[in-house]
Amino acid sequence: MADGDRIPLDAQSVAAPLSRFAVFLVVTVGASDAALEQARGVVAGVDDLIKTVGFRDLSAHLSCVVGIGSELWDRLSPGARPAELRPFPMVSGARHTAPSTPGDVLFHIRADRVDLVFEFERLLLDALRGAATVASETQGFRYFDARDVLGFVDGTANPVGAELAESVLIGSEDPDFAGGSYVVVQKYLHDLDTWGRLSTEEQESIIGRTKLDNVELDDAPGPQFAHKTLSTIDDGAGGELDILRDNMPFGRPGHGEFGTFFIGYSRRLWVIERMLERMFIGEPTGFHDRILDVSTALTGTTFFVPSRPVLVGLGESEEQTDASPASVSHPSPPADPDESLGIGSLRIGRTS
């Protein structure tokens, strides 16, 4: 395996292989000191719970990424703060709105067996009982060849190889939090009846790719750009600033519920925020992403995903240590995350 296929060992498993099942669990932590300390211990000990459940079938690749919201971060670690961490900003366009919704902790649970995902979540919530309240719980599944319920392949533009760490992991620009990442989550419901009345050609022009074979299309003339164009952010020098998507479909046909859970990891939070502005407000203003005419955002929350050493360090309360997460002992970060790709143990299994 080439070095570019690995990420640093001390990063959380943001790049775990594309799984068959996932739970996106967002909780809020109670205001009391007791609730805070209970939650502190749970988030810092997630790796132990992964081992407890995952040993039943190591080939199922159980993993859980923990993200901490802006307000809870200040409670857990008042002395140090990731440079870009802030609450999700509501984005309001002329016709569509991306709401901002509560959330203190994100647990992104993944595996190739639904029973392992279930058991992990059950034990996790048992450990949090009395300290946290579930704000949002979404059970996702892989749909055919990584398609969304609109019928299109999702995640095609994900970075791979050496580009992955560069796009997802914080580097020397914020050295105290190197190896961490920002993550934004949104839950979208789709109007499949309206979508189904569009021709395949109309659907393809909205997405910007062919439906059958996933070939990228050129934008039609005019300012109403396709989804693939509006969700692409350039670096000002002709390149693209990628994010890592691990979106999954969800649904309950008996309730007429069909949707996509968007989850995007990025080294630079502003890239996702700019992407959402282009989608909801338009580029230029007033020309929104037409996928929003059939897809309604129900939630929107931002989290910081600390590296494993920083996450474990959060388990030490102020009474136990006066050290901030910035002083947690771990190897000095390289100038660029890619320089340490060869020492990690997490393989990248995405093909889309």
Rank of each mutant, 00 (worst) to 15 (best):
Glu318Phe: 09
Phe304Pro: 09
Asp219His: 04
Phe261Asn: 02
Thr299Ala: 05
Arg274Ile: 00
Phe304Met: 10
Gln224Asp: 13
Gly300Asn: 05
His288Tyr: 14
Thr301Arg: 11
Val271Leu: 02
Glu204Gln: 15
Asp289Cys: 09
Phe250Cys: 07
Glu201Asp: 14
Gly264Lys: 02
Leu230Pro: 09
Pro249Ser: 14
Gln224Cys: 03
Gln320Leu: 14
Thr232Val: 04
Gly238Phe: 08
Met279Gln: 14
Thr260Ser: 14
Ser205Asp: 00
Gly239Trp: 00
Gly238Met: 09
Leu298Ile: 03
Asp234Ile: 00
Phe287Ser: 09
Pro249Ala: 15
Ser231Arg: 11
Asp246Thr: 12
Asp234Tyr: 01
Ile281Val: 15
Ser231Met: 05
Gly236Arg: 06
Gly238Tyr: 10
Glu202Arg: 11
Arg274Leu: 02
Leu276Pro: 00
Met279Thr: 02
Asp322Lys: 08
Ala297Val: 07
Glu201His: 11
Leu311Tyr: 10
Val305Gly: 09
Val271Gln: 10
Arg267Ala: 15
Gly251Pro: 10
Val312Cys: 01
Pro221Tyr: 05
Gly256Lys: 04
Thr301Cys: 13
Gly313Pro: 11
Lys228Ile: 14
Val215Asn: 13
Ile207Ala: 04
Asp246Val: 10
Ser266Tyr: 01
Met279Ile: 01
Val294Leu: 03
Asp213Ser: 07
Ser324Glu: 12
Pro284His: 08
Leu292Asp: 00
Gly208Gln: 12
Tyr265Ile: 01
Glu240Met: 02
Ser266Arg: 03
Gly222Glu: 00
Val305Lys: 08
Thr232Pro: 09
Ile243Asn: 04
Ser199Met: 00
Arg268Lys: 13
Thr200Gln: 15
Gln203Ile: 01
Thr321Asp: 08
Pro253Asn: 06
Asp289Leu: 08
Leu298Trp: 03
Leu311Cys: 11
His288Leu: 02
Thr296Trp: 05
Glu316Phe: 15
Ile291Gln: 06
Leu241Glu: 13
Glu216Val: 09
Ser295Glu: 01
Ile206Phe: 09
Ala297Lys: 06
Gly282Cys: 07
Asp246Gly: 03
Leu241His: 01
